[in-house]
Amino acid sequence: MLYSEHITFPYGQTENTATRLHFRVNRGVINFVWIIFPPGCAGLVKVRLYQEGHPFLPSQKDEFIRGDAYTFKIPVMYEVKGAPEQMTIEGWNEDDTYDHSIDFMFLVLPKWVTWPAYALSTMFERLIALFK
């Protein structure tokens, strides 16, 4: 399942006037996240993602991702186990002249598809935990 969001950030924003968009991700494993900055952003559009209100990408609080003519392809392997979880895209555009549109894509796969990469590692972790 591919979630795609195309968000236009108006010019003249600051961190305090950031644009936020919420959406829910159903059960599965978030496999990859793509963040696509078109040419022209000049590092002036800064974005970050939250999962249920916690910093997700990047992991640190108050940090952000920026770019210009660049696609960030980020392997995540985060499992949404039960109820759908709320993801939040937050970003702001410090350009004082141009709006910029950023694409976000989330590839969510069933857990069995990510086998063995994900499931096997989980199994090993549990085995190791037995001997601790």
Binding site: I36, P38, P39, A42, A69, T97, S101
Partner: peptide, 18 residues
Amino acid sequence: MVKGQPDYQGVVGRQEVT
């Protein structure tokens, strides 16, 4: 004044702005 360039909207082909 802090300024970038207009987006090359909708094109993922990573072309130069100008």
